[in-house]
Amino acid sequence: MNHRGGWALIQNTWQSWIQHRGFFFLLAFGWMLPLLVYLFIWSAAASDGAIAGLTQESLAGYYLILILTNQLTYATTNWTVGDNIRYGQISRWLLQPMSPIYHALSQEIAGKVVFMLFSVPITALLALIIRPQFNLSWGQALQFLPAIVLAWGLRFFWGYWLALLAFWVTRADSLLALQDSLIFLLGGHLAPFALLPPGMQTLARLLPFRYMSAFPVEVLTGQLGVQETLTGLAIQLGWTVLAIVLYRWVWTRGIRHYEAVGG
């Protein structure tokens, strides 16, 4: 492992991303909108009184935090993995004395910084207009930290192993679209976990998608008890480990396949 090379790459990528910040601000704006839509819809629905214990203000708080955490965990780079394999970019990376995952990681970190430059001020501005209600405490914030790190890891590695299937099939990025749809439905975008019908709640509890996006927000906004939080973290950790194992496995197999067929 070559950590110094990786860090240099991160700095480099960040600089080039900053130069194209207009482009990335547009992207960030685009991701923000669907969540804003559901913020407004649920606010309208809760205008006559709280639904399932969630008031208009707490729903707004939930969605504003989700807008930020969603951008923190969204793995944009996974969308380019397939192209990099198809157009031979990966051959160049394989020649470098550094694991190609550093390229993905450097783009991830650079991207997050640029997106936050846009999203934090906008969310703050929205908070002034919408006047949400947050029930934050130090304890929740402390639990939030592992949850958000694991959420990012899980979402990144899960998408990465799916994207690596491009070694064998074209248009593996459709699986990423499927993943996005499932995160939308089960990951707290369409509705907070508490507002989902029972069947979808069960699916959300078992499958990895809620743990990629909504779970840290639920922890931070105090929607979960201690027991639920700990179970959630355990399930999240389990899925993350599985995602990393799958990534390693698919990667080794994929490289072997790539070298065998000559790209």
Partner: peptide
């Protein structure tokens, strides 16, 4: 076909979830 199906499915499911909680919004 997959994308169109997903688009339709998420659209309809969204309404199902919302109107499962409230009968009429505005």
């Amino acid at each position: 076909l997959l994308h169109s199906g997903l688009n339709l499915l998420t659209g309809v499911l969204s309404l199902v979830v919302i109107f499962n909680q409230v009968e009429v919004i505005k």
